[in-house]
Design a protein around this nucleic acid. Structure first.
Lengths: 142, 142
DNA sequence: AACACATTGCAACAAAGTTGCAAAAAACAA
DNA sequence: TTGTTTTTTGCAACTTTGTTGCAATGTGTT
């Protein structure tokens, strides 16, 4: 299901079969307003009025399960979350885009334009999902 | 610097300019005996006699800094460690191999044979480092 | 052996994440 | 709208994970 800006937060939540609540609206809005990926801590801080830490955990988990956002593991052992641009469905994320981590501004973005070339695995290995994280200097910083 | 099995643990530690201690020998031996990547928790458990949690943290950190092992971030927000097969040097890891996570046995391995194809980034982005994690079913499980 | 230096383990702490449960809010039905 | 059911929230208590300072111990060197 595609997440496009023409939908309101309420409409989006409905489309993803989620009850419309305050925390979900605020947190989803955060993602819509934002280019780069967000960490749990960012969300706790930026979500305007403060929600309980537990609520943020549970909201993110729900969003991932329903396919609104996907998670990106990072080198420093934390998880970032970003909106799923398209064809992510409940339980199965198609992250066929790459993630770019800027070493200067430390922001992480999804590069939707870039395709991941086919990678041939040795005999016997079956590929289900591929995650590519490239770090370097982003467009804004160079 | 290449890590080959013909060297003893002691020799390896010396070569990487590390003092030879009990915990370092035991932990390095663990990695040498093992195909797949290890999590901090695995190491605490498997390291025969128990070392303090702090010692394990510090030993792993030292090994990463000196280039004996490299770390692999995982989707469930934990870090795995694996031996560096070759050309990793102090402070700079050349992880030009991919990591494969089996969804069945949950083991993570480095596929050294597989090369990462060139990925063209949009104008303005400068690539420094690339991490590829593929999940699916491994050879042993299929 | 004696020295300098590096490493360890303990304790205390900080941060991150989880669970159960009662209260509050949302959805649903009449 | 009102009442009923179901979902979500926030709190408290807890577990797990990771960090820091420091005294004691171990390692390398002469």
């Amino acid at each position: 299901m595609a997440i496009a800006k023409q939908y309101t937060v309420n409409e989006l939540l409905r489309r993803f079969q989620l009850n419309v609540t305050d925390s979900r609206k605020k947190i989803l809005q955060l993602f819509l307003n934002q280019q780069e990926a967000l960490a749990h801590a960012d969300i706790e801080k930026k979500a305007g009025e403060k929600f309980d830490r537990v609520t943020v955990y549970r909201t993110l988990q729900t969003f991932v399960e329903k396919g609104l956002i996907h998670s990106i593991p990072t080198a420093d052992n934390s998880i970032l979350y970003a909106l799923c641009k398209d064809d992510c469905t409940e339980g199965h994320h198609q992250d066929h885009h790459i993630h770019f981590v800027c070493e200067q501004c430390e922001k992480t973005a999804c590069l939707d334009q870039v395709n991941i070339p086919e990678i041939k695995l040795p005999l016997g290995f079956k590929k289900e999902k591929i995650d590519v994280v490239i770090s370097g200097i982003c467009k804004a910083c160079s």
